[in-house]
Amino acid sequence: MSAKRQAPVRKQASSGRKTPMRKPVAGTPGWVAPAAVVAGVALLVAAFLVIRWYMTPTPPPPLSSDSTAVVVNQITTLPSSEFESIGQGTANNLIKPVSGTPLTGATGKPQVLYIGAEYCPYCAAQRWALIIALSRFGTFAGLKTTSSSSSDVYPNTPTFTFHGATYTSQYIDFRAVETSDRDQNPLDTPTAAEQQLFNKYNPAGSIPFVDFGNRYSFTGAMYLPDLLSGASWQAIADELRDPRSAQAQAVIGSANLITAAICKTTSDQPAPVCSSAMIQGLEKKLG
């Protein structure tokens, strides 16, 4: 074929020269760039979710009663020198003075009231400090290990449950209400009076809630539960014996603040615990 294919031409009005007419090319539609950004963000969020799923620790199996006894004994027999050297540590002081009719237990002693739940990671963190502090005034029996919910923040935080445990002390009464288990099934029910106190001093309804004889109360955890994440009960107990560890600074620091609040309700009894300069200093901080 002799005929040549020619580019389409158009006449230029001014010069009269024939120039090739540009073949129309379909440009990238305007919506592509914004859509690519939205799709990219969605993909990254999906990737973050997958990473999170892989990183979530599995719930540790509860310890046997013998192993639990060893751990509880370890954390409730810490030397007083460790309490003294840590003081408030890295704990966040959440304890606030409250006013009301003095709260007493069945035996007439000042009562410490705890309301929390097994699924709650903040309760999981705070129980370590509560057990350590309360054990300076009395003795626990029947504590069992558990961990916070697998589907909440700070999942599977290792802890103990107050459900089914007993506490005896010649200075205070301790009443614990674990409202749900780690799967959010109902457990204990607060009395009407306890519910009233919970609503009065804790309008936001946060847990854990702790009332020290209606003189002080706090809600929430004094340190973040991620400090205990992925560790076994024994490993945490071992860390608590080292006053320089991050766990000891947070947990023992919280226990000291709780101890100071309890000492305020017991008129500084027992003296060996409450008369220390460190506890006296924390009592002043509580106001």
Partner: peptide, 10 residues
Amino acid sequence: VFVEIVVVGA
């Protein structure tokens, strides 16, 4: 968002 989902988990 990375901090929320991966680090804090909420």
